[in-house]
Nucleic acid binder design. Structure first.
Length: 660
RNA sequence: GGCCCCGUCGUCUAGCCUGGUCCAGGACACCACCCUUUCACGGUGGUGACAUGGGUUCGAAUCCCAUCGGGGUCACCA
């Protein structure tokens, strides 16, 4: 097949073949969408778009024990969020009301495999009656023992075909036993012949005769295995091109053999390189568990949590929310009291731990608006206790091979205020990555447009439309890739920077409302000063979450600034208190400054610097910075003060002068 | 271990099919300098790779072979 030229008029290329391309992404709904799965979906989507074909989503829920509707929904949400929309598959309504797969091709039995069991059974019986499959009655334990023995003896384990099974001959005796209800699985009779897979990415992959053994195609619970369901469905749903990860390459000869036995067509295959962590390990949830363990040990040692550790974790949360309680001491006291209340009243029965009651009893005078916040912290605290109070936690801390419940891992990370390595699409989303940047980056992992820009650089930045118009299987690479989160962050930062201030503000607000509602409320309260914050944080942010850190001084209440001791020494007290003296004087200028906007404030400072004959604005700028933020790092000083507003600025400077 | 796949800067890659224009280009990261009131942004420059060994050829990152290295897979999971 000749490589089609890129159409200059944007009209999608259509193949000469009469059958339009149909690709599919077929996740198993046993968890969230993995970033590697997202890339597979993206490539399948892009190829379908490029060729004017259809992209299908099929839910492979034949593992009854592990599959869940919730997971399937989550995967669809993640795909929709990324902008990877399926033409065929379950109908899905996105959060913003778009309907995906509204015009899906009607498929007999639908797109959930668990509901297609009669179809698999019909095809399976055809195989059995033509002697290409047979019921097998060995128990799982029996086979497991054989396998272990083989491994111990360092021999390759293969399932041995029973002597009474003859290829091509219907084994009525076995079928009868199976039909009578004897527990069994059904196995496929592997043909003794060379099988060549014509892979569009890797070239021809040849398997010698006898390499295949008789795999299970229907489990004892009556569900087909993946191998069988895939083959039946790809045919039934007209799939023409299968793009999947290379980990499936070894399965493909079996699939081809089954297609032949069933008289099916063989789709075009393309196996894509795998994606790993930077250290070469597989990207998985364990990475998060490991990272959380490491962070905990760094902060709190290898002892299980005691009241001190709990107090520390609660303090992290409380500090993050920067509540307007009088003092840090007072903030901590509610934490301490909550812990004792918990220990005394509940006697470690977590069901008796009622955040709302604690807030009401321990701190009746709490400001109305703070109550829900404290309650939410206490709820997280409760969940954390769930995860850490059992003996399991102590073991987990010491044993690198043990894992905590992922929910508790997330909770622990939240308490420690650390970012765990992202491995699922939802993690990237929660950490403030944009779908555009993720798709762009993912597209470059194993694929490359091979186009130079006018200044001779490789074309790397592009959008979904470009992908839909330029994607090609022949430019998929063969070598495994490592997932460089640093480069992704750079792409994300560039993407955010390319947004207009208004767009950025909209995204930021939406993200805050979803993932950091407390901070979101405070930032929304900025009102007319929000655009200044946006303008100043946008170039500093690799992710939306970065903005939260850059805007930390805004979130903090005027009277809850913690002054960094080194900064106070260097910028306020050094040189006989030069900074403090300048600050005192400059405070009065600020009080009189009108309007209180960045330009006026910069002008005010420039004039002050000139008047005081300072070599540069450093002494006063840094003094003000430390006074209002507690730290020597903030955006431009004029912007910083303007965002705070005159009232807060003066209050903070006054408090600083009285406290330090 | 059997079978299969892969091997260009630390990482993602262009170049390989159609050997010379490649003492190998770009991006991220890193380093230096510039800009600068801090942190960023931005600008300029730099360090840095054809896994190794044999062939073939006037000439090899590009073709062939071997070695080494990495990975996948060997489930009643997908």
């Amino acid at each position: 097949m000749a490589r089609p030229a890129t159409s200059s008029d944007g009209v999608p290329f259509r193949p000469m073949s009469t059958s339009p391309v149909i690709t599919r992404f077929a996740p198993s709904p046993t968890g969230h969408l993995h970033i590697g799965g997202a890339r597979t979906a993206l490539f399948c989507w892009a190829f379908a778009r490029r060729t004017g074909g259809r992209f299908m989503l099929r839910i492979e829920d034949t593992d009854a024990a592990r599959s869940s509707d919730e997971s399937a929904r989550g995967i669809m949400e993640d795909l929709a969020w990324l902008g990877i929309e399926w033409d065929d598959g379950p109908r899905f309504t996105t959060a913003d009301g778009r309907v995906i797969a509204a015009n899906a091709r009607p498929i007999d039995g639908g797109y959930f495999q668990a509901r297609r069991v009669p179809i698999y059974n019909r095809e399976l019986e055809r195989l059995v009656r033509t002697g290409r499959a047979y019921p097998a009655f060995e128990g799982a334990e029996e086979l497991e023992a054989k396998r272990k023995a083989a491994v111990a003896a360092k021999v390759t384990y293969r399932y041995e075909r029973p002597a009474d099974v003859k290829p091509g001959e219907f084994n009525a005796a076995r079928w009868e036993r199976a039909c009578k209800g004897e527990p069994h699985v059904v196995r496929f009779v592997a043909p003794f012949e060379e099988i060549v897979v014509h892979d569009r990415v890797l070239g021809d992959v040849t398997n010698a005769p006898g390499e295949l053994d008789d795999i299970v195609i229907r489990k004892a619970d009556g569900f087909p295995t993946y191998h069988f369901a895939v083959v039946v469905d790809d045919e039934a749903m007209g799939v023409t091109h299968v793009l999947r990860a290379q980990e499936h390459l070894a399965n493909t000869p079996r699939h081809v053999a089954m297609q032949k036995a069933l008289g099916y067509r063989t789709p075009v295959y393309g196996h894509m390189p795998l994606i790993f962590n930077m250290d070469g390990t597989k990207m998985g949830k364990r990475d998060r568990d490991k990272a959380a363990k490491k962070f905990y040990r760094e902060r709190l040692g290898d002892s299980p949590p005691n009241p001190d550790a709990m107090a520390y974790l609660m303090e992290q949360w409380v500090n993050k929310s920067n509540l307007a309680e009088p003092t840090k001491h007072a903030r901590m006291s509610i934490v301490g009291q909550a812990i004792s209340y918990f220990a005394y009243e509940s006697r470690n029965d977590l069901r008796k731990f009622k955040p709302a009651e604690i807030v009401a009893q321990v701190w009746p005078s709490l400001a109305q608006g703070s109550k829900p916040v404290y309650e939410s912290h206490l709820r997280k605290f409760q969940k954390l206790l769930e995860g850490t109070s059992s003996g399991k936690f102590a073991q987990w801390l010491r044993d690198a091979s043990l894992q905590l419940d992922p929910e508790h891992v997330d909770c622990l990370a939240d308490a420690l205020d650390v970012i765990l390595p992202e491995v699922e699409v939802s993690h990237f989303r929660a950490n403030g990555y944009s779908p555009e940047a993720i798709c762009n980056f993912l597209a470059l992992l194993g694929w490359n447009p091979g186009i130079k820009t006018s200044d001779g650089k490789d074309l790397e930045k592009f959008n979904m439309k470009f992908l839909a118009e330029n994607f090609s299987i022949e430019r998929i690479g063969k070598t495994n890739a490592k997932f460089d989160r640093v480069k992704l962050a750079s792409f994300n930062g560039d993407y955010l920077a390319s947004l207009s201030d208004a767009e950025y503000a909209a995204r930021l607000t939406a993200w805050l409302n979803e993932f950091e509602p407390e901070a979101g409320a405070k930032i929304a309260a900025l009102g007319a000063r929000l655009p200044i914050l946006v303008a100043v944080t946008k170039p500093r942010a690799k992710t939306l979450r970065d903005t939260l850190r850059a805007a930390g001084f805004v979130l903090r209440a005027d009277d809850s600034t913690d002054f960094d001791a080194a900064a106070v020494e260097k910028n306020l007290k050094a040189n006989d208190g030069q900074g403090l003296a300048l600050l005192r004087e400059f405070r009065e200028r600020l009080a009189a400054c009108e309007p209180f906007d960045p330009a006026a404030l910069h002008a005010l400072m420039d004039a002050f610097v000139k008047e005081k004959a300072l070599a540069n604005p450093g002494p006063i700028a840094q003094a003000v910075r430390v006074a209002v933020a507690g730290v020597p790092v903030t955006p431009g000083i004029g912007e910083t003060l303007a965002i705070l507003g005159k009232e807060s600025t003066l209050a903070r400077i006054d408090r600083c002068m009285s406290v330090v």
